[in-house]
């Protein structure tokens, strides 16, 4: 039989945990609203840029002389992965699911005999990948997935990647992040960013415009197609990274809200159970004491 004092202490402690989780849930819900509108506001730019690029790329007669960011470096030896996670935990499977996908990709690329490099955005991803793949991590960026993510951060990373690519340090690159679908659903997404690949059809919000990819060839180009591509492709890197940051942040808040909602509910159930035990124990004690008194009186 657990004693009453211990039970009281436990109930108090679960209660205070519940207060914290429910506060976190409410904070996540507030942040989610802003983050979601930021993520949605950021989609048009990325979608349109990709659409124009896809159109341009399709209209090029050959890939000869095309910028390397489109045509590839001609080799396929080194792969760079940008793994976007959160800086903080307590958001359910959010970080783990990205890391799990990253591990899978690393294994696949390694099995194909490629060298893999990792850039971790967010502390949690770094922490989880460090033990197994510490030597692959070339950099970690912290505190750039946050409320009102700054395009300048994405730009810094984007131009760094494009410099590294120009220097021949990697041949292909992808971004792994949680795409925000709804508050309760985040989809782990792998996007190839180098060489440029047209977006898979199910992604993005502006699908209605997908069909006008065809007549792109009729555009007057100023300057030439190649030059436009050379100017836009490096920018596209930054834009795609920026998109990943926004989507990831919104997903993080959504995941945290769900996780904390569950935690609050679980804590409530636990409190109910502990209260029941507490009351039973108390009653049992009273009964026992009564029996002791009565049988003591009878013995006299």
């Amino acid at each position: 039989m657990p004693n009453l004092k211990d039970l009281r202490i436990r109930i108090a402690s679960v209660r205070s945990t519940q207060k914290i989780t429910s506060a976190m849930k409410m904070m996540a819900a507030t942040k989610l609203r802003q983050a979601q509108s930021a993520a949605e506001a950021g989609r048009p730019f990325a979608d349109r840029l990709e659409r124009v690029l896809a159109g341009l790329a399709a209209s090029l007669p050959t890939l000869d002389g095309a910028p390397k960011l489109l045509a590839g470096s001609g080799r396929d030896d080194a792969h760079l992965m940008v793994v976007v996670t959160a800086d903080r935990g307590l958001c359910g499977g959010f970080n783990s699911s990205v890391v799990r996908e990253a591990r899978r990709q690393i294994a696949a690329h390694r099995a194909a005999g490629k060298k893999v490099m990792l850039v971790c955005v967010g502390r949690k991803g770094r922490d989880q990948l460090r033990r197994q793949y510490g030597e692959l991590i070339i950099d970690t960026l912290e505190n750039i997935t946050r409320q009102g993510a700054d395009y300048a951060d994405a730009q810094a990373l984007g131009s760094r990647l494009s410099d590294m690519f120009d220097a021949g340090e990697f041949d292909t690159a992808s971004v792994i992040y949680n795409r925000f679908k709804s508050a309760i659903s985040q989809v782990v997404t792998v996007r190839q960013i180098v060489p440029f690949a047209p977006p898979p059809p199910e992604e993005g919000g502006e699908e209605t415009k997908a069909e006008d990819n065809g007549p792109k060839a009729m555009y007057i180009m100023e300057p030439s197609e190649e030059e436009i591509l050379a100017d836009l492709l490096p920018r596209n890197l930054s834009v795609q990274i920026f998109r990943a940051l926004l989507e990831s942040y919104a997903s993080e808040q959504g995941a945290r809200m769900t996780a904390m909602d569950n935690a609050t509910r679980n804590a409530g159930e636990m409190i109910d159970r502990l209260n029941l035990t507490y009351n039973r124990t108390r009653q049992a004690n009273i009964t026992r004491e009564l029996i002791e008194i009565i049988s003591g009186a009878e013995a006299l």
Binding site: V52, L56, P215, M218, Y219, I220, M221, E222, P223, E227, I228, D231, L232
Partner: peptide, 16 residues
């Protein structure tokens, strides 16, 4: 490649 003005009915154009 220089400033350009866009009026209604401009020919399709892509420019940096």
């Amino acid at each position: 490649e220089g400033d350009f003005g866009v009026l209604p009915g401009h020919a399709p154009l892509l420019s940096t």
